[in-house]
């Protein structure tokens, strides 16, 4: 895609240890490596108050590296959807002083942040690091349906079928990029579909 981006496009950083008593890590895919990289900078005993939630791939890659950090808890849900009820419960019962660290694919970071926002956590206090696929979650502005793992530009809405321009405009509340009909003015114009978010 174009190098030029816009201000609503989220910017991810590099995880760094925050002050606080409890630390909750949520990661998928290569996000595990963001955690192990950060561990080198963490003060001694940091992981004694840490819970790591990791959604592993089918081969179970990176699990042993996370185990080696000896966190207070390591939880390995099969998918984000299966994690969500537990995550909501954890956040409801949590106290101020809990810090959040999200690492991995953009879809995971976005959806975990969405749950945190709903629990009253300010997005600026959340540490994030993007690793792995650039595939996007996209909201179709027309039918409001969310299409997961969008890798092409343009992309078809998986709900209403319109051909959508995947914009950089991003909503934290929806955890999604905006998709807008690319040929609304003249349906006969069908631009080629390219692989844009590998």
């Amino acid at each position: 895609m174009t190098a030029k981006t816009i201000i609503s496009r989220p910017i991810y950083g590099t995880l760094s240890p925050q002050p606080g008593k409890h630390h909750l890590f949520i990661a998928d895919a290569e996000g595990a490596l963001a955690i192990t990289d950060m561990a080198g900078k963490a003060p001694p005993g940091f992981f004694d108050g840490a819970e790591i939630v990791f959604i592993p791939d089918p081969e179970g890659k990176h699990i042993s590296a996370l185990e080696a950090l000896e966190p207070a808890q390591l939880h390995l849900p099969p998918s984000f959807a299966s994690l969500l009820p537990r995550l909501r419960q954890t956040l409801t019962n949590a106290h101020m002083g809990l810090r959040l660290y999200l690492a991995g694919t953009e879809g995971l970071i976005g959806q975990a942040m969405q749950a945190a926002l709903e629990a009253g956590v300010d997005h600026t206090s959340i540490e994030t690091e993007h690793r792995g696929s650039l595939a996007r979650r996209m909201q179709c502005v027309h039918c409001k349906g969310i299409t997961e793992n969008v890798t092409t530009q343009p992309a078809a809405c998986s709900h209403c079928g319109l051909l959508l321009l995947v914009r950089d405009h991003y909503s934290r509340r929806l955890a999604a990029f905006q998709g807008v009909c690319i040929n609304a003015e003249d349906r006969s114009e069908i631009p080629p579909m390219e692989e844009a978010f590998p």
């Binding site: 201000i7 609503s8 496009r9 909201q139 502005v141 409001k144 405009h169 909503s171 934290r172 905006q178």
Partner: peptide
């Protein structure tokens, strides 16, 4: 522009699509 999409954003974020002004 879409309120449903922009709700919750800050001044810079909802103005993100505007060219040149930033």
């Amino acid at each position: 522009w879409s309120l449903d999409f922009d709700i919750g954003m800050n001044f810079f974020e909802w103005h993100a699509p505007v060219p040149l002004a930033h």
